[in-house]
């Protein structure tokens, strides 16, 4: 799969079209953190329609990756 790197000084991710599943998915790999996530068409469409406010919330470091609330990963 052709892989494209999208990088800034803040993050570095590799994106590619994954066709191994029954339908196509976008494969996103965090090259600095090593984690991979696949987004299917409906998930991607949802990101497109996500209100700006909600997208902004995702950028809060405590929203997921660096959360210290019990129950969060």
């Amino acid at each position: 799969m052709e892989q494209r790197i999208i990088a800034s000084e803040f993050a570095e991710v590799a994106v590619s079209l994954d066709t191994d599943a029954n339908g196509p998915r976008l494969r996103i790999e965090d090259l600095r953190g090593g984690r991979v996530r696949h987004l299917d068409a409906l998930e991607l469409e949802s990101v497109v329609w996500l209100p700006e406010e909600r997208l902004r919330e995702l950028l809060d470091p405590s929203a997921g990756r660096w959360s210290d609330r019990p129950g969060d990963e």
Binding site: L59, S62, D68
Partner: peptide, 19 residues
């Protein structure tokens, strides 16, 4: 320390915010 700002200057968040 991972403090994150919008490109308008607004603070979006900081890691381990319980502190």
């Amino acid at each position: 320390h991972g403090w994150t700002y919008r490109n308008t200057g607004e603070l979006l968040g900081y890691p381990y915010n319980q502190g």
